[in-house]
Amino acid sequence: MCESLALYMRYVGVSLRAQMQYRVSFVLQVLAQLGVTSIEFFTIAVLFARFGALEGWSLPRVAILYGLVHVSFALAEALGRGFDVFPELVRGGGFDRILLRPRGAAFQVLAAEFQVMRIGRLAQGLAVLVWGLAAQEHAWAWSDAVLIAWAILGGVCFFGALMIFSATLAFWTVEGLELMNVLTYGGVETAQFPLDIYRPWFRAVFTFGVPLACVNYLPAQALFGAATPERVLAGWLAPLACAAFLGVSLLAWRAGVRRYVSTGS
């Protein structure tokens, strides 16, 4: 375990040095990402300025939802970039090279790239999260900080699982993989707002189909003042559901690798 972590850090170092070869492009990418995510929050703020409130949700509370989902997504994107570009790896035969090395395939794909430019989304998400938390009239406890970190961990698992699922599909098909964006980017877009505002069928898809509700909606409600004990419990358990989702995605991945090894394509 320790040895794998050390190796992972080496991979990260290699990936960082490779990215630093293109500095101007890197800075512009970070700025562009900061811009895109800022626009997203700006439009939310504009809507709140027009409408005042959203079915009992204030802007700062929505900001907490927004912050949690964007921080999780940014971390997952930075960590899981290898899964993101996996279809190209399979098409170009690079996955053979991975199988020729004496380490786990998922580990090597994960380690292949740590994408620093996601720091743009991360910074913006963190800023919004902190602003939302500061605007709550509520005595903060240490347990809240732990819950936030715990929720972010769950969110990283959730988005990581989506990336692994979509990479796994590449073992079967190379076409139409863009459809998974509906769940990843669509999930981020959806989770910026409280799930209870959506129509029931849609809510069901993002609660039971994929556990998006566990990324921010359930944990955030445990943070707000006057949360019922059931809500607090649900908030603390939610990240476990995300971890379980990640587990399922890894099982699917293994099935995909087995298929690759038996079909050779």
Partner: peptide, 12 residues
């Protein structure tokens, strides 16, 4: 040389 270092670590 950096590839060599990383490969050394991968192959233990």
């Amino acid at each position: 040389v950096e590839s060599f270092e990383l490969l050394g670590a991968i192959y233990r």
